[in-house]
Design a protein around this nucleic acid. Structure first.
Lengths: 238, 238
DNA sequence: CGCTACATTGACCTTGCTCAAGATTAGTGG
DNA sequence: CCACTAATCTTGAGCAAGGTCAATGTAGCG
């Protein structure tokens, strides 16, 4: 514990509630409990703005987010930034073939996560083919989602990107919370959304403002309320 | 056999040379032979412009490309297209958790591939944990490459995208052929490159023309010759 | 040789970016 | 609880990268 900067252990008990939902970004799969994994994990608390790990650091740990949203960011050498995903409760983080993390993971609100030592994790996975199969399926699903994002960035307009993003977040919260809601919680900043969608903060702000002006949504603290989900599904297309 | 449209069997012998290199797109990993896999595969020939499979079809087969380049394309409902990758010799194709293929796979030159029935493939994988571990590692690596592509599409200029693409293809051919070359083989059309990089055909053409005018490369039939690889590495940055 | 695909080039236009000025919100200390 | 500050967000004006439309050039192939 504590080797990751800004992390504080909230609860020294073994992690009781590690139901993995994805390898590094988002996933709608619900797989229930991953037997054995919880036995090697520790529940850890990460306050808003703290890092779970940083790009380039040795990938010593694997995480399973249990509460809050984590921003996954890649930094280019010249400072440009691309958010490759937002990890939400149930998501797995830090699984990689590489010796170092490929992106930084930062809490954009207070976060709780189960933290696994990589070696213990690898050993456990090696000894449980069924567990490995599930992780492999997750990772194939992650790949498919990454390809959705590639299509979005390569071929969609600013409006389509925003609409897709809002629906995407809504869908993910529906999985986490168990029921869908027209109010979408967005703990990340406009800059984070912009860097996720390959836009500028001004374009994100303008597009959301225009949607609000057109009564397609209402801006609320740390989120938006969609007036007509159908309308957004049309806009999203992709 | 030949249930896949336009496919012709070149050689009915069991596939002898299935060394997988990646799950669906590109990968620089070289893993040698995947024991057991070749025993359930058949080598099949796909002439230029034929499809290995199409988006939405039931994902009945898994493929390992042994020769040629395969274009992996997603089509949006309104006709916009995004190429999510080019599969090259050694690459694996069609591995997915979903019941249908998430993209179409088309030969952009004459292609040879080993074709596995999905059930036989699944059974084999289930019975060989070591094989599954390798496939899982591939898929985690694929995810990392997809994130590179996301960063490229989200944050890079047209020039940077072209430069990255050319270097990327060069690197991949170096792995396939065993040695790097300043001449990069590009069997796909300008339109395919554009749809891969999230650009238009005109921008791809103009950018390559300008690079040729500036003596950074020479356009050759089905490819380019890089005058100074360093120069491109600077341009690529990401 | 002539057809068809594909590629290149030019002129013009649009989307989204840049720069800059306010407005709002969140955080902090009195 | 309020005032002050800093960060974040919004809005506007102007600009530029890349898209669109259209014409021309070139290569592959029967």
């Amino acid at each position: 514990m504590g080797s990751t900067s800004c992390a504080h252990v909230r609860d020294p008990r073994e992690c009781e509630d590690c139901s993995a939902r994805s390898l590094s970004v988002c996933s709608a799969l619900d797989v229930g409990e991953l037997d054995g994994l919880h036995e090697i994990a520790r529940s850890t608390f990460y306050p808003n703005r703290s890092s779970l790990f940083r790009q380039g650091e040795p990938s010593e740990f694997v995480f399973n987010v249990t509460e809050g949203v984590v921003r996954l960011a890649r930094l280019l050498p010249d400072g440009r930034r691309q958010i490759v995903g937002f990890a939400m409760p149930g998501d797995f983080l830090g699984v990689s073939v590489h010796a170092t993390y490929g992106f930084s993971a930062d809490a954009v609100e207070d976060v709780a996560a189960c933290k696994f030592g990589r070696k213990a994790y690898e050993d456990l996975v090696a000894s449980k083919p069924h567990l490995l199969k599930r992780l492999h399926d997750f990772s194939a699903n992650e790949l498919s989602l990454a390809q959705d994002q590639i299509t979005l960035l390569g071929r969609c307009t600013a409006e389509e990107r925003i609409a897709s993003f809002l629906l995407h977040m809504r869908r993910r919260w529906a999985v986490v919370r168990g029921k869908p809601s027209v109010t979408v919680h967005l703990p990340m900043s406009r800059q984070d959304i912009a860097d996720f969608l390959g836009l500028t903060i001004e374009t994100v702000s303008r597009t959301i403002s225009r949607m609000a002006r057109d009564k397609e949504l209402t801006v609320v603290p740390h989120g938006v309320r969609l007036s007509d989900v159908r309308r957004f599904e049309q806009l999203a297309a992709a």
